[in-house]
Design a protein around this nucleic acid. Sequence first.
DNA 1: ATTAGCACTCCATTCGATTGAGTGCTAACA
DNA 2: TGTTAGCACTCAATCGAATGGAGTGCTAAT
Lengths: 342, 342
Amino acid sequence: MQMDDRKIKILETVIRNYLETGEPVGSRTISKYTDLNLSSATIRNEMADLEEMGYITQPHTSAGRIPSDLGYRFYVDNMMKEKTKEVEELKVDLLEKQDRMDQILKQAARVLADQTNYTSLISAPAVHRNKLKFIQLSRVDAGQILAVIVIDGNVIRNRILQVDADMDDETLLKLNLLLNTHLNGLSIGEINLGMIAAMKEKAGVHSQIVSDVIDAVADAIKQDEDLEIYTSGTNNIFRYPELADGKNASEIITALEEKQELTELVQSTLQSENNTGIQVYIGNESPLSTMKDCSVVTATYELGDGMRGTIGVVGPKRMDYEKVVSTLQTLKKEMDKLYRKE
Amino acid sequence: MQMDDRKIKILETVIRNYLETGEPVGSRTISKYTDLNLSSATIRNEMADLEEMGYITQPHTSAGRIPSDLGYRFYVDNMMKEKTKEVEELKVDLLEKQDRMDQILKQAARVLADQTNYTSLISAPAVHRNKLKFIQLSRVDAGQILAVIVIDGNVIRNRILQVDADMDDETLLKLNLLLNTHLNGLSIGEINLGMIAAMKEKAGVHSQIVSDVIDAVADAIKQDEDLEIYTSGTNNIFRYPELADGKNASEIITALEEKQELTELVQSTLQSENNTGIQVYIGNESPLSTMKDCSVVTATYELGDGMRGTIGVVGPKRMDYEKVVSTLQTLKKEMDKLYRKE
DNA sequence: ATTAGCACTCCATTCGATTGAGTGCTAACA
DNA sequence: TGTTAGCACTCAATCGAATGGAGTGCTAAT
């Protein structure tokens, strides 16, 4: 069977109508809604065809039709019109707290959830193959040394180290010099055992501190690799009855809370980047089985130098794809811009 | 009417039974469960009395009785036995990541939720009237200065400052000296305008940096004052049918997500400390109207020097108070211990 | 003071009847 | 050959009556 213009128009009407109302749509409704001037009987025939082709289904005999996953897919790929207005204010909001990465991310997630009325998630960018920019040891108290580690992209980690013997400023200065001359500008992979041994030797009695700092560096990186994910608007799930009832809601919320599962989603998005940078997972297309009754739309943002994170929306299959995609696009652009400026 | 031993025993049976099953309990059940050897008829008379006194209610005529808020209150105040075993492992878990405050808090919340099967929340300790311990400026890049601010209790804040002209190490050293000699050991309230003016004067051309640092300090403190709250086990709500249905669940989850409301709860707990440090809010006793169908149990932990935070549990009114209270007590102790050691 | 017995209440469940939206099919029509 | 009117049929949803059962309150007897 072949898709023709009329079938497409009918399919589109079914989908748009269902997106609005959430109710199965029948032949009579379509006959009235479209400018095709066809009787409901004709529409019925066409709908039977569309069902056979897999684009729509009936929840039960004698109900109207609703889009299948394939139908949504067709819609997203071929029928969506771009919206490109809106989401002006968030620019300002985002810029407000530039200096705190996590604040920005939380803010972005919140904006996204507010704008769309779905649940949003955002992953902090993975630092990965980035370079050490700066290390600083300071004495904050008797027996306590503060290590500050800065990675490219101004990601900052702190660590308090305990030392047995108190340290004078001069020693500390020397250690700082030692660490920075050896490690600065190196990526994580470039720091090897030989280097560490050499540094320890030069540090003499203070070799312990060197080990501790190296550990701290390794730890800081690792912490960044099990990427953090923030969510917002979890409660929006309750707006959509098909997701709100007991078991379903519980599963989804659990998944959103146990960020564990979400990392899979994030990874999947990061890997398979398509030309637009926007991914749409409909129902079972999602890498998460928990989300089989949802649609997930994600975008990848870049903070320059290969630091990439994911931002996305989780909602019912009958989500307003146009709005979600356009909002994501705007947000993605803002995020990209944000750091290009710095 | 007076409370006597028999009434107490019956009330207790009603409550314990209801805690277990979640179903209203009838007179026959009680007649069998207790060692009172009374017929159901007698029990019925007593239960009518208890109802009149306000300790129990009927969901409808011809149903069994369930405890009222007052009944739970009586139970919590007079009938609870202390449990003091369990929760051994968490000690280890907690100590593992000592150096990252937020990690500890998240971990604690998670342990609490896992142990109890309710939803848990924890607020980061407010730093408030604490003293500045250490300030350090470092040059990390052309035009970028990293400011590290350490507050008593080893709370660390970072800030990247942009500067127009590049700075040499010597100037930086001077600035560091200037800032530390003036500000170290001062509480936030003690830093006044006169001081700032004096410092700016000494800094000469670099007075802008001084302002920026002061701003950063103020900001770091402020950030700490709108206290952060972490939650865990939100999904546990779905274990309890009386909370799981649509509207209720939605409200509670929203409240847990919009941490805004929770701060009220935290404040209320922090202020009204009783001798044990544990607060039990039953139904409407809670300062949050959203929680009127829940019980909330909170504890205050101290990290020495007046830094106090709140840790708590949100669950159905028929929660296992004994377990929750004992778990909270253990956890509170662990948290207290944790920092006394440092 | 306690208890057996009984009438009564009210929720929960089941069952059937009804309703209505929507379909599929057939036959007529242009 | 494509379109349409008409009709029988299906099935979820809704309503109401009937039924069962858990539990109470009250009364009279012990």
